[in-house]
């Protein structure tokens, strides 16, 4: 009984974490470059819808197998475009990032909903991405089902954690990103085009948020409905703080949140006497608790996070 309960919590919690993980990793790049993008939610909304659209239109016919792949590509491209727009507003025009982010969130949510009404009409499902058990590995007792019996996007998302770490800490571009968020003036004096780096980081972050949104519509819910993302973009932003701007920390945050979500659902389904109102709060309370108890000295983020770069100004 306990074995089954733990297995179910873990095997469901892992795929539940993917949308948050993808979006949070993207947001981590944004913030590492000195820009925090509260519009992550809006990008996820657009990614969820535009990712869903090819799968919806191509669900029958010879191109049907490519609908989902195309959906992820379109979602990533839409994320890049929205990241570019956000960069234009916050990097070039130096608009206040928080306000611009809220604007992007509302725009993404509204445009996705409007296009959905126009092109689809109502709540609709798609085939979605099926599970793809990894040969051999998925047969490992207990762990096989938890880690290796998911759809391909789960594996890709988890592989993006070491890839992001490598990109951020082992490549010249990663060094530029970190410098743009921490010492932009020094980076500028060393010949790094800070604004260009921020543009690039925002485009990458947008692509990953778009993928996170598409994961919701193509893999998790296998449907699209208005406001499908339902606030997960804001949680993704919070998880970057939770993860202390490191890929591993972000992974930990996404897993903690999703496992707590899986746990609270399992508690309810198991019939354990516990008010459901408190159960549904559990993941949020847990994140706040960990954030509150974390050592403040280790919570320092990029020093120029949220500060537009202007080489003519002193900070």
């Amino acid at each position: 009984m306990t074995h089954d309960l733990v297995y179910n919590i873990l095997s469901l919690g892992v795929p539940f974490s993917v949308a948050l993980l993808l979006a949070s990793l993207g947001e981590m790049f944004n913030q590492r470059a000195g820009v925090f993008n509260l519009g992550c939610e809006g990008i996820m909304c657009m990614g969820a819808f535009l990712g869903f659209l090819p799968a919806f239109f191509l669900k029958t016919g010879p191109l049907a197998p490519y609908g989902i792949v195309l959906g992820f590509a379109v979602a990533a491209a839409a994320g890049v475009a929205m990241g570019l727009l956000f960069a234009l507003v916050t990097v070039t025009f130096r608009a206040e990032q928080g306000i611009a982010g809220i604007g992007l969130q509302m725009m993404g949510w509204g445009v996705a909903g409007t296009l959905f009404r126009h092109f689809v009409g109502g709540v609709t499902g798609v085939e979605g991405l099926a599970s793809w058990p990894l040969p051999g590995l998925s047969r490992i007792p207990f762990l096989g089902g938890i880690l290796f019996n998911h759809n391909p996007m789960v594996y890709i998302a988890f592989l993006m954690v070491p890839a992001s770490w490598y990109l951020l800490f082992k490549t010249p571009w990663g060094l530029k990103v970190r410098a743009a968020g921490t010492e932009p003036r020094a980076a500028d004096s060393m010949g790094i085009n800070v604004n260009r780096v921020r543009y690039q980081a925002l485009m990458l972050g947008g692509a990953m948020a778009g993928l996170g949104g598409a994961y919701l519509s193509l893999c998790q819910a296998k449907m699209f409905a208005d406001d499908l993302v339902a606030g997960r973009g804001f949680i993704a932003v919070a998880l970057v703080y939770f993860g202390r701007w490191s890929p591993l920390g972000v992974l930990g945050g996404a897993l903690l949140f999703s496992l707590a979500q899986s746990l609270q659902l399992a508690i309810q389904v198991a019939g354990i006497k516990f008010p459901y109102e408190f159960a549904v709060m559990l993941p949020y309370v847990l994140v706040i608790l960990v954030l509150s108890l974390a050592r403040k000295a280790r919570m320092r983020g990029p020093t120029h996070l949220g500060v537009p770069f202007n080489r003519e100004m002193r900070y």
Partner: peptide, 24 residues
Amino acid sequence: KVAHTGSFGDFVKASELAQTQMKA
């Protein structure tokens, strides 16, 4: 197995809850 999502409009959470129930 009665469980609640705490929301009228969170389709993803409803999907997660249904998956949890099927697993159970």
